[in-house]
Structure formats: C-alpha cells, structure tokens
Simulated scan of single mutants.
Amino acid sequence: MPAPAADALLRWPDAFGSRFAVFVDTEEEFDWGRPFSREARATTHVRALPEAHAWFAGRGVPLTYLADHPVATCPRAVETLLALLQDGRSAIGTQLHPWVNPPFKETVNGYNSFAGNLAVELEAAKLRTLTDTITHAFGVRPRIYRAGRYGFGPNCAGILSGLGYRIDSSMRSGYDYSGEGGADFTQVGNQPFRLAPGLTELPLTTVYTGRLRRGGARLYQRLGTLHRGRGIASRLGLLSRVALTPEDMPVAEALEAIRTAAGEGLRFLHFSFHSPSLEPGHTPYVRDAADLKRFYRWWGEVLSALDRIGVRPASLSEIIEALDMACDPRGISAIAHGAGGL
C-alpha cells in the first residue's frame, strides 16, 4: 500500500478531543497452527461475551463487534450480540474470513485467506453475502468493515463504497504481510484518510517507542535484516514496534506506547483483540485461566492510564460523526472537499 496522498489525510476536529476505541474481531474458533478449513465454524466462546461486555461497559467503554459469517449465522451468537447492543453505544460491523464465507469458489489456502487476493467478482460476492447476512440478523446495516488477516486489496475500497460502508479498518499501520501473500502497510500511518467517496480508512494504531522511534517503520524494517536486530534494539530501549492489543503485547510496552502517543499529539488510539481470546484454549494468546487473568489485568492498567491522561472512549457513531466534520491538513472540511456522507 502506498502512503496516502497528503490531501486524503483527515484531521480530527478539535471538539473530538483525544479518544480511543476498542474493536473486537468477532469470529469463529480455529486452530491457529493448522491450515485454514471451511469446517472450522464453532462459536462456543460467545458465552463469554456478556461477562466481557459488562466488564468494559462498567468502565464506560463501548465495543464494536466486527462479526464474520460463522458468527452472523449462529443463532446463539446473534441472540447474545443483540442483547449486548442494547446498551445503545456498542455497534456491529463486518469482518470477512473468505475461507468460511460463501460463495465458495476459491481454493482454501494461505494466499486466498487474504480477501484482497481474490478475483474482484468473488470478493464482491462474499462481501455482499456477509453484509446482507449481518443486516438480516441484526436489523441494521453495518457501517464498518475489516478484512480478516488485514487482507485489504486493490478492489476493496470500490466494493465497500458501493455497499455503503463508511469506514474500513483493514490496514495495520507499520506492518508488512507481503511475505505471506498479503499487503504491506509500512507506509501507512495512524492518521485516518479518505479511500473513496464516502469511505474512510481508520488504520489500526501502531506506535514506535524508544530513543530511535523517529526512524519508524523504515528503521524497523532495516533492523529486521540483521540477526536479532529488532530484539536487541528493543531490549536496549532504542526501538520497539507496539500494537495496541493485549494479545502478545506486554502491558509495560503498551503503557509506554500510550505515553509516547500522547506526547506526540496522536489524537486517536485504535485498540483490538479477537473474541475467542475471551475464553481459554481458543487462541495462542489465552491458553488457560492465568492467561485470561493477565488479559483483563492488561486492560485494567491500560484503561486506567488512558483515563489519567484524559483520553476518552469513543463509540462508532461518535467516530463517524467526527469524521463527517474532519478536515484535511490544509483546513478544508471533508464535506466541503467532496467527501460528504462519511
């Protein structure tokens, strides 16, 4: 992915303040160490969603659930999520896992697990099917999309715009999946930007910490060519790449990333995790009860840190409203600049 054009970048309106949001990849359970399978569609972990939802709601944090096809076609999962959405602030969105989402016309393999690698007709058909399924199940048309495995491709923006989506959240700032057949996002920063008329990219936040953090993605890539280069740089406090997720990210690094982001004026922090991590045994991140305790402890420390520095939670509706009022770096409003209807 090339860096977004300067006039596509959007600046959060002053009234929005400094905010954060939590997006949940709400998906089926599968063995992360085995090949993809169309048969892996279990969603037993949804029984853990109400407790987690109540935990976040008790701290004033709405959740946006990005549901995929196995979730949206499971009556128990739909019933559970419908009850959670009654809080009036949480929201439902879309996540596409091509290997479990009809129509099934592609070979199941790693390359095709990135939706952006599919033929445009097939990617569009899968997205239409999923969008219609979620609309029927939840009684509301989803407004935000994430490609599973961050599988954004050249046709995705056009498809999403045609389906009426307002936000794409498929790009993971600073990460490169090209070695697996996916996209390279190392030139994509944390700032939202216009993808197509009415469609905004809201990248997952990545923060570089350490004394050499100004080197960013480029220096991090170079360190990757050296034996243990990234690990040594991190241990010496020179450069670390921090994703805002409790999954395989130590809380001390997340807290340092929050301090760094606040000090550098980053106005929006985009957090995420996978729903199967809410019950032990489904992901490599939460294997047992001790891991689950660490998961919630991570969030407790992170939310306390955000509260101390005045970074407030934002709902999906509040984010879309702010993007409606957003300006590009030259001070031109998005609506006046031809991006009305975000």
Rank of each mutant, 00 (worst) to 15 (best):
G139A: 11
R76N: 07
E253P: 02
V311H: 00
A3C: 06
A183Y: 03
G331K: 01
T135G: 07
I159W: 10
R287L: 03
D25L: 08
G198M: 13
C327W: 00
A254G: 14
P4E: 12
T260Y: 00
L160T: 13
S234W: 01
F271W: 08
A326K: 00
P192M: 09
I167K: 11
A42Q: 12
A217H: 07
L66D: 04
H282W: 07
E106I: 05
P13S: 10
P197E: 02
G162M: 11
A115T: 15
S178L: 14
Q86E: 15
E279F: 03
N101P: 06
A254D: 08
P246C: 05
E180I: 11
A233I: 01
H45K: 04
T209P: 08
G162Y: 04
S333W: 00
E123F: 05
L49F: 12
W299D: 01
R11A: 15
F36L: 14
L269E: 03
G338D: 00
D291E: 04
L223D: 02
D184I: 11
G210L: 03
A125C: 09
T209A: 09
W99C: 12
A290E: 04
G139C: 12
L278K: 02
G148A: 08
V140E: 13
I167G: 11
L323C: 01
K293R: 14
P103L: 11
I144E: 11
T44N: 10
R41K: 14
F30G: 08
P192A: 10
G162L: 09
N109W: 09
P142H: 07
E123N: 07
N190C: 14
D7V: 08
R312S: 02
L316M: 01
P70H: 07
A326Y: 01
A67F: 07
P142G: 05
V24E: 07
E318T: 04
D25V: 10
R235L: 05
E279K: 01
W55Y: 15
G162E: 13
G224T: 06
L244S: 02
S90A: 08
V140L: 10
L118R: 03
R141V: 06
G310D: 03
A314V: 00
S277H: 05
S113G: 10
G93S: 13
